[in-house]
């Protein structure tokens, strides 16, 4: 029973890893499109954090599932993941706080339904 489960896992591993890597790349593109489309700096931060969280998670998880991964590489992938998850919000908060302190005003209220007022 366990043997068959392991065999199925080993067969599915490269496909699942590749699919997760591809999903991560697509999520990175989606986050970048959001950064390009959103009207002002503070809303762009939200789009950039999609890349920081879900794209990084899916790409690193996909790479960990690939059959070339040894334990040494898996530990490094996990370290990169933890590092991105700790430093990502810190630098985002630093940028947002610096912009807020410098007096950059955020756009408040509904955007886009009407004329789409410029930031």
């Amino acid at each position: 029973m366990i043997e068959t489960a392991l065999t199925i896992f080993e067969t599915l591993r490269p496909w699942a890893g590749g699919a997760l890597c591809l999903l991560g790349g697509l999520l990175a593109i989606i986050g970048t499109v959001g950064v390009l489309r959103f009207p002002d700096f503070y809303t762009r931060l939200h789009a950039a954090s999609v890349t920081d969280t879900s794209a990084a998670t899916s790409l690193l998880l996909g790479m960990a599932l690939l059959p070339e991964t040894t334990w040494l590489i898996a530990v490094k992938l996990a370290a990169i993941w933890v590092f991105i998850f700790i430093t990502g919000p810190t630098s985002t908060h630093a940028a947002a706080s610096a912009a807020h302190t410098a007096g950059l005003q955020p756009v408040i209220g509904r955007v886009g339904r009407r004329d789409g007022d410029k930031a």
Binding site: I30, V33, R37, F38, I108, G109, R110
Partner: peptide
């Protein structure tokens, strides 16, 4: 939360409501 933001990024007509 990711799902909400991804939908907001991909919507054809930009429809967000930022708030402090």
């Amino acid at each position: 939360a990711n799902w909400i933001v991804i939908r907001a990024c991909l919507r054809a007509e930009l429809d967000i409501q930022p708030a402090l």
